[in-house]
Amino acid sequence: MTKALQNFPDRFLLVGCGNMAGAMLDRWLAAGLDPAQVAVVDPFAAPRAGIVQHATLGEWQAAGGSADWIMLGMKPQQLGDIAEILAPLATGQVHLLSILAGVSLVDLAARFPDAGAQVRILPNLAARVGAGVSAVATFGDADDAAIDALLGTLGKMVRLADDSTMDLVTAFTGSGPAFVFRLIESYAAAGERLGLSAEDSLALATATFGGATALLADSGEKPGVLIAQVASKGGTTQAGLDVLDSDGQLAALLTNVLRAARDRGRELADIARGEG
């Protein structure tokens, strides 16, 4: 891949570096970000060559730590304790990035009022391979070119005018890969129940979903157009579609899935504000 971040000049601090933040960091390092410019505060994060890791913010401060970009990647419930320590350090031109579910730009501005910009990012796990989707909304004097460079290495970036729909986006694209993985898992299990081996069924399911989404993205067509190209009246595909489309159950199920994830995001926001 191109080393898009090879000359990125600023220093990073990641507060929390679990699965999602870790996937973003690994992609940035692969894109040329200098590990010597990065510090991680997370006692449980997987070690990465060249990156200094600290167990606590106090330990990072004692080591003389400073950063131009601070990314919050811990659990939303930890925001209150973290902000109390971090807010005095997030001043001037420091960009405060957050991938915390349910924590709004208003919440971030209240917790970190002196930051140069508050940036709310909703990425997903496919960022690990540069095929993610990142929704972003900003407040303050954000460096849009730098944000484009950082998020562009993760995959597709969508700028939102504000973060009013971010709870839904969190459910839709942030949680979305897990829902797709579950669909693939269930599809493979169905193949196994009907006679395929477990290994063959999963391989075929993975390739089928991957090929279908790649075709959809490459063709520029709407899904219905491609469905019509596969299905013929009275054929095998149409027989299966008739089951999927029966009484609108699939659409209703997916709506309920997204609603549950969205509502949980709102609950997490209340908890982060100390209201839950």
Rank of each mutant, 00 (worst) to 15 (best):
M1E: 05
P9L: 03
P9N: 03
R11W: 05
R11I: 10
F12I: 04
L13I: 10
G18N: 02
G18A: 01
G22R: 00
A23C: 02
D26W: 12
A30V: 04
G32S: 05
A36C: 07
V38I: 04
A39W: 10
V40M: 04
F44H: 11
F44S: 07
F44P: 02
A46I: 11
R48I: 09
R48P: 07
A49L: 05
G50W: 13
T56A: 03
L57T: 02
L57H: 03
A63W: 08
G64L: 12
G65Y: 07
D68H: 14
I70V: 15
L72Y: 14
Q77W: 14
G80F: 11
G80T: 12
D81F: 13
D81G: 15
D81M: 14
E84S: 10
A87F: 05
G92D: 03
G92T: 02
G92H: 02
Q93T: 10
L96V: 15
L97K: 12
L97N: 06
P113A: 07
A117Q: 11
R120A: 09
I121F: 02
R128P: 03
V129L: 15
G130P: 07
V136M: 06
A137E: 04
T138N: 13
F139D: 14
A145V: 09
A146G: 09
A149P: 08
L151E: 10
G152T: 03
M157P: 10
M157W: 11
M157S: 06
V158I: 15
A161W: 04
D163L: 01
T165D: 05
T165I: 10
T165K: 09
L168F: 06
T170Y: 09
T170L: 09
T170V: 08
T170I: 08
T173C: 13
G176A: 08
G176W: 03
F179V: 03
F179S: 02
F181W: 06
S186E: 13
Y187V: 00
A188P: 01
A189F: 01
G191E: 00
L194K: 00
L194R: 05
A198E: 00
A198D: 01
D200N: 05
L204I: 00
A205E: 00
T206L: 06
T206Q: 11
G211E: 01
G211A: 01
A214L: 08
L215I: 14
S219H: 09
E221Y: 13
I227D: 05
I227G: 11
V230S: 01
A231V: 02
A231M: 00
K233G: 01
A239P: 00
D242E: 00
D245F: 15
D247L: 11
A252Y: 08
L253S: 11
V257F: 09
A261P: 06
R266Q: 15
L268G: 06
D270T: 13
D270G: 13
I271E: 12
G274Y: 08
